[in-house]
Design a protein around this nucleic acid. Structure first.
Lengths: 347, 347
DNA sequence: CCGGGTCAAGAAAACGTTTTCGCCAAATAA
DNA sequence: TTATTTGGCGAAAACGTTTTCTTGACCCGG
């Protein structure tokens, strides 16, 4: 019972050779006779030999594995980033070990520990923690294990980062609404993570640049899902005067907000223009096709893959080298507007 | 440079002990002095020791890893299944190694080989192959490695399977349209995989049960995405007589179909009623909220997790034991209707 | 004083590889 | 002929664990 595996030794025994010679054939060493090589390859084929990467990892001190710890897989953003990373890592022989923290910081810490134990050569982390890093990163530092923060960064911790330029995202969305003639622009912000904070900043900056006043009640919060968007929008509509437009933290929030507006008998975009973010799949098929800011997730993924693979191959570093003067990389991908019906006021 | 790790030996050296004793402490063996145990635990904490699972896997002949090979992550189905599996596997100490075949059979075969080399204890495969298994499963059989087919099964190969009851799905959708008074019911089928074939079967069975004729042109094919749905629907609308309703392979196809209908100036559901499948996130926010058949993906994932973990723990089997008389398990999850506007003809 | 038992620790073997080094025979050069 | 190189192969060590077996010290009862 159990799994039966063919080892180098099995090939060696059958051919009256040593494991060393067999190994050498498979590693393409030159100091082995052509005829011997042929016989080994033939036998390996015949027995269906597959190398044992666990053993190889141990002796070579290289797992060829990249770990990813994500809060969830709900948004297309993480899926597409994941696909982009997989597409780059696989041809280089790297495997991807994935863990989901379920938005739970303790679970996140456990999964990170687990990744360490699995000897990953690099770790991509989209942290679920509210904006600030704790000492849960210490084990990574101690081991000098390459860390790449994805999408969300920490205010008090310098690490390599790849994500969307969220300040720009906020500015783009807001500028677009202004351009459409909106003046009472509200914002449904997300939870207390860097992306949400940066989007608020972009929103404010752009309003200020156009000398538009911010009604104090025009920024409402939530957990970042459609449920939250629905209820936040419901209450926003009761403000006096009510907003004529809203920039939402992401597409799910925008979807909820749209539902709230339509349920209230108001029209989109005539009464309330809506802009989301993330360009979720099929958001063009919403009741009113949704204007959104595309985060170019595939590009984010590609950048993340390039960086983490580079770090892994060079055997750098969480933050140790930063302290020796080298700055961590910070890659911000510029978002792009995708304009659809939900915000089109001008014809 | 490179990653620096703390080993058992480091702890042992500092405390003038042998690795054996240190290992025993961490494995909770009883034959070690209480004071020694305390010192070891303290030192392990101090040095930030994390066990090396690669070494442990090698000696214990247990990787505690489950592999998943999926065609892609686009549909919410796979995401939710993945999440459900992760939720069950993680508490049991299993990690998930994921690979994406990109719908490419060769890539799929490579990824399977890779999983073998990584010594996974069980493999979940949603194959991209058109309905029939090839000899690419031979390495799995040879090693007696537990295989679980997810979502899509093979006609000519008996293996454990967990997925949606797709025949029922096709019947449910069709029956619902009949109930709404539709008579010219078309079907936009998916690619040549078992799920699509089964859905067609359900569709035909239900039509026959109601003695409804099938217009030969009423089944149109495609690749299963919204693009395909759009063009297939476009041409379906030119049929004489045109269908008054359509059951679509999945929600993306339905989304494309809806777009085609609306673009043609027709109304949903009055002129053409539409039913999708999969209950994609936010399909209730479509231009016309989409009626769909929910595949209960979380339940599928939970079942898949239970089965593969059970197989892995018991060290069974691809198909070897099947031949010894034990039948592979076949778990079919019953889908449920989610009725929304796109199909509601009766008030 | 001896035999048995208990307690605490370590030595050795094992897991499947890779790599370095050494060995021997045959071929080549001097 | 002798010295040197070359070609082909294997022995041994290493990677970080876990497990089994052994050892030695100590205590207790007879």
């Amino acid at each position: 019972m159990g799994i039966v595996a063919v080892r180098l030794k099995d090939i060696a025994d059958e051919l009256q050779l040593s494991v060393v010679t067999v190994s050498k054939v498979l590693q393409n060493y030159r100091d082995v006779n052509a005829e011997t090589r042929r016989r080994v390859l033939e036998k390996a084929q015949e027995l269906g030999y597959r190398p044992n990467y666990v053993a190889r990892s141990l002796v070579m001190q290289r797992s060829a594995t990249i770990g990813m710890v994500l809060p969830h897989l709900r948004h297309t953003f993480f899926q597409e980033v994941y696909q982009a990373i997989a597409a780059k890592a696989s041809p280089k022989g790297y495997s991807l070990l994935i863990a989901i923290s379920q938005e739970d910081p303790d679970q996140e810490a456990r999964e990170i520990d687990h990744m360490i134990s699995r000897q990953v050569e690099g770790l991509i982390l989209a942290s679920t923690r509210p904006y600030t890093a704790g000492d849960f990163l210490e084990p990574l530092e101690k081991r000098n294990l390459p860390l790449l923060l994805l999408d969300r960064e920490f205010a008090n911790y310098d690490a390599h980062f790849v994500g969307t330029d969220d300040v720009e995202l906020g500015r783009f969305a807001t500028a677009h609404l202004i351009e459409q003639g909106c003046t009472r622009i509200a914002h449904l912000r997300g939870p207390d993570v860097s992306t949400a904070i940066a989007r608020v900043e972009g929103y404010r900056t752009e309003l200020a640049a156009h000398k538009l006043t911010r009604h104090p009640h025009y920024v409402a919060g939530g957990t970042g899902d459609d449920e939250a968007g629905y209820w936040a929008m419901k209450s926003l509509l009761k403000a006096k005067p009510p907003p004529d437009s809203v920039f939402c933290y992401n597409d799910p929030v925008a979807a909820g907000a749209m539902k709230a507006v339509l349920d209230s008998g108001l029209r989109v975009p005539q009464d309330v223009a809506i802009v989301g973010a993330g360009n979720m799949h099929y958001s063009d098929l919403f009741r009113v096709p949704l204007t959104t800011v595309d985060q170019r997730s595939a590009e984010v993924g590609a950048q993340a893959a390039d960086l983490i693979l580079d770090l892994a191959e060079r055997g750098s570093t969480t933050s140790a080298t930063h302290k020796r003067g080298r700055r961590p990389k910070r890659v911000l991908v510029k978002p792009t507007m995708v304009i659809r019906e939900s915000s089109r006021r001008k014809r």
